[in-house]
Amino acid sequence: MTKLIVMKQMMTLSGISTRTTNTEEMGSNGRLPQLWEDYFQKNIGAQPEVVDPHLIYALYTDYESDATGAYTVLIGHELNNNGVQAKTQLKRAVVPESTYMVFTTRKGPGFEVVAEAWGVIWEYFNQPQEEERSYTGDFEVYDSRDLDPSNTEVKIYIAIK
């Protein structure tokens, strides 16, 4: 898995969300598979104010504490901040400007490579590092133009101090 450090400007995302914990997601009560199913059924990328509808974001935000506490996941798209705000029942979230450590997964089955990557990320930040997570908003980016479920490559952005 490759990683690099980048600075990203603030962005606004819109989509559907749920609140969960890593413990729930590792058990049989995980909410994320249903959230992904709902995302695809509701055609979230068809919003008129979406920027680059082929880029799908899974934002991890509103952390209760750290990787062990509750957090909110929003699956959706970046919005054009200059556009008129459409009346929608979708949730909105602002991802603050931040420095990110970007982890790129290997290519493989989507859920497998993402779960594997998060394991590497948690292990990395559990060791003494120069970088420290800020828990202000982490996100995965999927490019639907290349979204072969059996050969997916995902970029995971971890906000650091």
Score class of each variant (00 low, 15 high):
Leu35His: 00
Trp36Ser: 01
Trp36Gln: 00
Glu37Val: 00
Asp38Arg: 04
Tyr39Gln: 02
Tyr39Cys: 03
Phe40Tyr: 12
Lys42Gln: 14
Lys42Phe: 03
Asn43Trp: 00
Ala46Asn: 05
Ala46Trp: 00
Gln47Thr: 02
Gln47Cys: 03
Gln47Pro: 00
Pro48Tyr: 01
Glu49Lys: 00
Glu49Gln: 10
Glu49Ser: 10
Glu49His: 05
Val50Tyr: 07
Asp52Ile: 10
Asp52Ser: 15
His54Val: 12
His54Pro: 01
Leu55Phe: 14
Tyr57Thr: 07
Tyr57His: 13
Ala58Cys: 09
Thr61Asn: 14
Asp62Trp: 04
Asp62Ala: 12
Glu64Pro: 08
Ser65Gln: 14
Ser65Cys: 13
Asp66Met: 09
Asp66Glu: 12
Ala67Asn: 13
Ala67Lys: 08
Thr68Met: 15
Thr68Leu: 15
Gly69Tyr: 07
Ala70Asn: 10
Thr72Lys: 05
Val73Phe: 05
Gly76Ala: 10
Glu78Pro: 04
Glu78Met: 11
Glu78Val: 07
Glu78Arg: 11
Asn80Ile: 02
Asn80Cys: 07
Asn81Val: 14
Asn81Thr: 14
Asn82Ala: 11
Asn82Gln: 13
Val84Ile: 13
Gln85Ile: 14
Ala86His: 09
Lys87Gly: 09
Lys87Ile: 14
Thr88Ala: 14
Gln89Lys: 15
Leu90Met: 10
Arg92Ala: 10
Ala93Cys: 12
Val94Gly: 02
Pro96Thr: 05
Glu97Asp: 07
Glu97Arg: 12
Ser98Trp: 01
Thr99Asp: 05
Thr99Cys: 10
Met101Leu: 12
Val102Asn: 05
Phe103Ser: 04
Lys107Pro: 02
Pro109Ile: 02
Phe111Thr: 02
Phe111Tyr: 03
Glu112Phe: 04
Glu112His: 07
Val113Lys: 01
Val114Gln: 01
Val114Gly: 01
Val114Pro: 02
Ala115Glu: 06
Ala115Phe: 02
Glu116Val: 01
Trp118Cys: 06
Trp118Val: 04
Trp118His: 08
Gly119Ser: 09
Ile121Cys: 09
Trp122Tyr: 13
Glu123Gln: 15
Tyr124Val: 03
Phe125Lys: 06
Gln127Trp: 03
Gln127Met: 13
Gln127Ile: 02
Pro128Asp: 15
